[in-house]
Simulated assay, not measured.
Amino acid sequence: MKFIVQWKGLPSDENAVIERFMKTGGQVPDGVTLLGRWHATGGLQGVAIVEADDTRNLAALSLAWGDLLTMSILPALTDEDLGAALGKHQAAGQRS
């Protein structure tokens, strides 16, 4: 399943975030596949799309950076997945 990962940090933590990222390369934990990651210009915030089958691996990702960054991890749908869900929703409404 795909997930949207968003993070934001405080300016006071910038040096620590830079140091950790440069040391680790921002690697994700085992069981999480990084599909893409984007960083905002100026400021500690960004977004990544990851894939994982087990939410425990997502918890490991959050915990690895949780002391420096506020993170949110949300399930993500492709246009095709959303279209299928919306079609199912519409069909159920028409049966009522």
Score class of each variant (00 low, 15 high):
56 R>M: 10
53 D>C: 04
70 T>G: 05
90 Q>R: 05
37 R>K: 04
20 R>P: 00
71 M>D: 04
10 L>V: 05
43 G>E: 10
10 L>N: 10
55 T>M: 10
14 E>S: 11
40 A>Y: 04
43 G>V: 05
89 H>E: 08
9 G>E: 11
92 A>W: 07
69 L>G: 01
78 T>K: 01
55 T>Y: 11
64 A>H: 07
6 Q>S: 10
12 S>W: 03
17 V>R: 00
57 N>T: 12
77 L>C: 06
79 D>C: 13
86 L>K: 08
63 L>S: 10
9 G>R: 03
29 P>N: 02
40 A>P: 00
2 K>M: 13
63 L>E: 14
59 A>E: 15
17 V>F: 01
16 A>F: 06
78 T>N: 06
17 V>N: 00
59 A>D: 15
35 L>P: 08
66 G>W: 08
42 G>E: 12
68 L>C: 05
69 L>I: 12
2 K>S: 12
3 F>I: 10
40 A>Q: 08
49 I>R: 06
80 E>A: 11
44 L>M: 06
93 G>H: 15
81 D>P: 05
49 I>E: 14
8 K>A: 04
94 Q>M: 15
93 G>L: 15
2 K>P: 13
91 A>C: 05
16 A>C: 02
44 L>G: 00
4 I>P: 04
3 F>C: 05
7 W>I: 03
78 T>V: 09
84 A>N: 08
59 A>K: 11
18 I>Y: 01
79 D>P: 15
33 T>K: 01
67 D>G: 04
91 A>H: 03
90 Q>T: 12
24 T>N: 01
78 T>R: 00
50 V>W: 03
35 L>I: 03
52 A>K: 02
60 A>P: 02
30 D>Q: 12
66 G>V: 07
27 Q>W: 03
23 K>I: 06
11 P>A: 07
22 M>A: 04
72 S>K: 15
80 E>F: 13
42 G>C: 02
26 G>N: 01
30 D>P: 02
25 G>V: 06
5 V>Y: 04
88 K>D: 14
62 S>C: 15
52 A>M: 07
51 E>F: 05
56 R>V: 13
42 G>P: 00
85 A>T: 12
34 L>M: 07
58 L>A: 02
51 E>I: 06
67 D>C: 06
92 A>G: 05
19 E>W: 00
84 A>K: 07
90 Q>A: 13
55 T>E: 13
40 A>R: 04
29 P>G: 00
34 L>G: 07
92 A>T: 09
39 H>R: 09
63 L>M: 14
38 W>D: 05
79 D>A: 14
53 D>N: 12
7 W>G: 00
26 G>R: 00
22 M>I: 08
7 W>K: 01
91 A>L: 06
6 Q>G: 08
22 M>G: 01
66 G>T: 04
21 F>E: 05
95 R>H: 09
64 A>V: 09
16 A>P: 04
32 V>C: 09
30 D>E: 15
25 G>L: 02
91 A>W: 03
62 S>L: 15
92 A>M: 07
25 G>M: 02
43 G>A: 03
78 T>C: 10
68 L>N: 05
94 Q>P: 11
36 G>Y: 01
85 A>C: 11
